[in-house]
């Protein structure tokens, strides 16, 4: 009886997709991404980077060791904090950051879609709607910390949200307009095999990449956590596991955005055609999508080695004056493409 209920819950596609792909993969990807970020930066900076934890793996286990350290570190909660939001914000923030996976199709085979085909029609909109939620918890974490640096960091995060959200959504909608559907599966299928929107609509792609970099505080937009003025921004008062959740959350969000970009701009499972059965119909295409998402994540990670950080007003300036017109042009291009029937 109880087992049946548990099985029913876990068997519900959105749930196991969130657990396996969302949580499992994104944990793995964030470990790999952090490792890659450190290794790339080290190479460009003529260093070795993580090495001694496992010389043969190039120090990959260093990150596992880091995670273990965070997991077992003492969590210090200062007396002055607002306890409930302080504890709840990082946990809920991270859970919500991986929630968009619940509606993402990893295959064109409707049998393995997480939602029924009717609901899948709005999957892009639902996913985008959920991606706009986690920053609220970052702001809440900063506010609850009762620390001046944390408050300033949270405020900066709030400023940045206003800048990138519109761009990201417009950029994604450019593709939806071109295809004429909000269904991620349809969008991905329309690009098969090489008619990728990355090439058809580079303006929207660039706008979305910049928006993702801003959203997940990657360089050159690592402003809320800017170390040299606000220590660790909203996460200044956090320690141990809660800090790891906060920091890991950014990488997970980057990965989720990567999945969305892979589906909308990089052809999803293209050039592969999902077939029947769990292996050919679900596992292979989902791995292809994950690899594409990983490439996006790693490309954004590489920017750390090249850029410093923009000033807050300059970042907003770039967002509103340069990237928003870019996204609008991308949207216009998408509409034109839909009109002439290119896509």
């Amino acid at each position: 009886m109880v087992l049946d209920v548990v099985e029913a819950i876990l068997g519900f596609p959105p749930v196991w997709q969130v657990l396996v792909v969302g949580f499992g993969f994104s944990l793995l990807v964030s470990v790999v991404a952090v490792w890659f970020e450190r290794k790339t930066a080290a190479r460009v900076q003529r260093r070795l980077g993580p090495y001694w934890a496992s010389p043969r793996l190039g120090g990959l286990l260093h990150l596992v060791a880091d995670m273990l350290r965070y997991a077992f570190q003492q969590v210090i909660i200062p007396r002055g904090v607002d306890m409930t939001p302080f504890l709840v914000a990082p946990i809920v923030g991270m859970v919500i950051s991986i929630l968009p996976v619940a509606v993402v199709p990893f295959t064109s085979n409707p049998q393995y879609w997480p939602l029924p085909p009717g609901a899948m029609e709005y999957s892009l909109l639902i996913a985008l709607a959920i991606t706009t939620l986690p920053p609220i918890f970052i702001v809440a974490a900063g506010w609850a910390s009762n620390n001046k640096f944390a408050v300033i960091g949270g405020l900066r995060e709030a400023f940045i949200i206003t800048a990138y959200e519109l761009i990201a959504i417009l950029g994604f909608l450019a593709v939806a307009a071109a295809v004429g559907s909000f269904n991620l599966a349809v969008i991905a299928e329309a690009q098969n095999p090489v008619k990728w929107f990355m090439l058809l609509n580079p303006l929207a792609f660039l706008a979305v990449i910049i928006a993702v970099a801003m959203s997940t505080s990657a360089f050159p937009f690592e402003i809320p956590e800017s170390e040299s003025e606000v220590v660790a921004g909203p996460f200044t008062e956090y320690s141990g596991l809660l800090y790891a959740l906060n920091m890991g959350g950014a990488y997970m969000r980057r990965f989720i955005y990567g999945i969305l970009i892979a589906l909308t701009f990089m052809g999803g499972w293209a050039p592969y055609n999902p077939g029947e059965g769990i292996f050919a119909g679900y596992i292979v295409p989902s791995l292809i999508v994950t690899v594409k998402a990983l490439i996006i994540v790693l490309a954004i990670s590489f920017l750390r080695a090249v850029y410093g950080r923009y000033r807050l007003d300059q970042a907003l300036d770039i967002a509103w004056r340069l990237t928003l017109p870019l996204a609008l042009l991308g949207l216009a291009l998408g509409i034109i493409q839909a009109f002439i029937g290119l896509a």
């Binding site: 190479r43 003529r46 260093r47 070795l48 590489f302 080695a305």
Partner: peptide, 13 residues
């Protein structure tokens, strides 16, 4: 320049 050093780091660690 970043890519150049990524491909050939010229380390002396």
């Amino acid at each position: 320049v970043g890519l150049k050093y990524f491909l050939d780091p010229k380390r002396f660690t």
